[in-house]
Design a protein around this nucleic acid. Structure first.
Length: 485
RNA sequence: GUCCCGUUCGUCUAGCUCGGCCUAGGACAUCGGCCUUUCACGCCGACAACAGGGGUUCAAAUCCCCUACGGGACGCCA
């Protein structure tokens, strides 16, 4: 292990979003590439929105994707606890230090008061910064008011100086003196604010590289100031571009399917999602794009991360998912397909006579046409739920004089079938024999049988399809079709 | 409003650090063809971009400046 330490720090407010997954992925790839440590920290200081269940969802999502972490809740490591609400003492100590050094002060302004000031500033065209009302309040006065039962927040004294942030991806960025005013670091109830808690945690957990979305870029000077005041050297920052929806705004639920859970239940494969996400704002030096996680970790580096935001392209993800479906074993795809087929009522895996071998061969004939596993329901319809009426083209073909002869020939062949299913060889032999006795061949023959049996439903190769159908059902369908014709 | 970041085909991107190899390469999507007794898969091909304007230079997608547009932040959210 090297000294490199990175972290992924989600707040537990639901399933992970693809934007966050990409951040987690880059952290993971960077850590693995550098032989470093990947820390998972839960940032649950927003008491209203954070839940314990969400925490579990995050663990599940990350594990499904294969983004395993080296340190975190339930795994351990020398820097715990890894959940912010369990670190109250740590933050309190850091806050006391800042207070003692004169880097922070108590602020008694009410939320309403601040909100009004903000609105007024915005209205008059000024930056909505804190007006510094409590900035010079003597500590002795403040303590007296606290004794009297007032609950102040703790505010950090933003220095009047340019703050320079060095970022691997963006280079050196200078924030002028007045980009922000004094800001709150601890709420009246003692719970720390994000900008304060991250700094304390990143410093104490020895995080060397902070890789996160560039929506945090403008928070960074504040954090840099806190690192300084606390006496820690800041980590290396890498602000990666955001992921946008097709309308170029920050990707969110209203763009549709964006939570990991959604992708999983729609039948996406984790390796496809990971591969696709890796290609958003990162590219491999060799310009290839299909990579396993192992290949990604070998190639990943932060200096090939681009600066501009990327639009999430569902079509390309689907294409890539199809690619990975075709790479997987039939047995695996079959297992993944079972829940969808069961839900559609096509199969019942709990029944004693459930024929897994037959299902596997059906899936084998269908796999190439799938982009996501849930496509299987529609693709397999022809086997389990054939349409009850003929379309126009089928009807036309059925009225051809040769068709009836061909179908009758095929039925005769079926009557000779020895077992429940035809073998592919038996099927071919049957076709040949019809060809011989009727003088039909090529397309008309094929079409006649196809119309008779599958009724023009999109489906797999006929010589795969027919043998998979029980002979009894084939006959039944043929009779019906002959009657209609 | 103020500050910060960004801008190459419809989309993801290569190229930009170290200007000429760029009549700008690849991928998805789209369209066309081949394969196939259907669909799909696969293969081949076509369409399609350096935001705009000024510089610097023999030469600029690449360096500098301005403008426009997009995004983010300015919260007792993270």
């Amino acid at each position: 292990m090297s000294d490199i330490r990175v972290r992924f720090a989600p707040s537990p407010t639901g399933h992970i979003h693809v934007g966050n997954v990409r951040t987690a992925l880059f952290n993971y790839l960077f850590a693995r590439n550098k032989n470093g440590v990947f820390v998972l920290r839960i940032e649950d200081t927003d008491l209203e929105r954070s839940t314990g269940e969400s925490e579990k969802l995050i663990y599940d999502d990350l594990r499904w994707l294969g983004l395993n972490w080296d340190e975190g809740e339930g795994i351990g490591g020398g820097y715990g606890p890894y959940t912010q609400t369990a670190r109250a003492d740590t933050y309190r100590k850091a806050a006391e230090q800042l207070l003692a050094n004169g880097d922070a002060y108590y602020c008694f302004c009410s939320e309403d008061e601040l909100e009004a000031a903000r609105e007024a500033a915005l209205k008059s065209g000024n930056p909505p910064l804190y007006n510094g009302k409590c900035h010079n309040l003597p500590l002795s006065d403040a303590l007296k008011r606290i004794e009297n039962g007032e609950k102040p927040s703790l505010r950090f004294k933003a220095l009047r100086q340019d703050v320079i942030v060095n970022d691997i991806i963006h280079g050196s960025i200078t924030f002028p003196t007045d980009s922000f005013g004094d800001f709150i670091i601890v709420r009246p109830n003692g719970v720390p604010i994000y900008n304060f808690a991250v700094v304390v945690d990143d410093a104490l957990m020895n995080i060397t590289h902070v890789i996160r979305g560039d929506d945090h870029l403008s928070n960074t000077p504040k954090q840099a100031l806190i690192f300084q005041a606390l006496g820690y050297a800041p980590p290396v920052f890498a602000h990666i571009p955001m992921i946008l929806g097709p309308d170029r705004s920050k990707l969110s639920k209203r763009h549709g399917n964006t939570s990991v859970e959604q992708f999983r239940s729609d039948g996406y494969l984790p390796e496809a999602l990971v591969n696709y996400l890796a290609l958003l704002s990162w590219s491999s030096p060799d310009e290839e794009e299909i990579f396993s996680v192992k290949e990604l970790t070998e190639r990943f580096s932060l200096d090939r991360v681009s600066k501009s935001a990327a639009v999430f392209d569902f079509d390309k993800l689907k294409w890539m998912n199809g690619l990975y479906i075709r790479k997987r074993d039939i047995s695996e795809i079959t297992a993944l397909a079972v829940p969808y087929l069961a839900k559609a009522g096509y199969i019942d895996p709990d029944r004693a006579d459930f024929d897994m071998a037959r299902l596997t061969s059906i899936i084998a004939s269908l796999r190439d046409s799938l982009n996501i596993i849930s496509d299987i329901t529609r693709a397999a319809e022809v086997y389990f739920n054939p349409p009850q009426t003929l379309d126009e083209e089928s009807r036309d073909i059925l009225t051809l004089p040769t068709t009836k002869v061909v179908l009758e020939g095929f039925q005769a062949e079926l009557n000779n079938a020895a077992s429940e299913y035809l073998t592919p060889d038996e099927y071919k032999a049957a076709m040949k024999s019809i060809q011989k006795s009727t003088g039909t061949k090529g397309k008309p023959l094929y079409m006649a049988v196809r119309v008779g049996v599958t009724r023009r439903t999109k489906g797999p190769e006929l010589d795969q399809f027919i043998p998979l159908m029980p002979v009894g059902i084939l006959k039944e369908r043929l009779e019906k079709v002959l009657k209609e014709a």
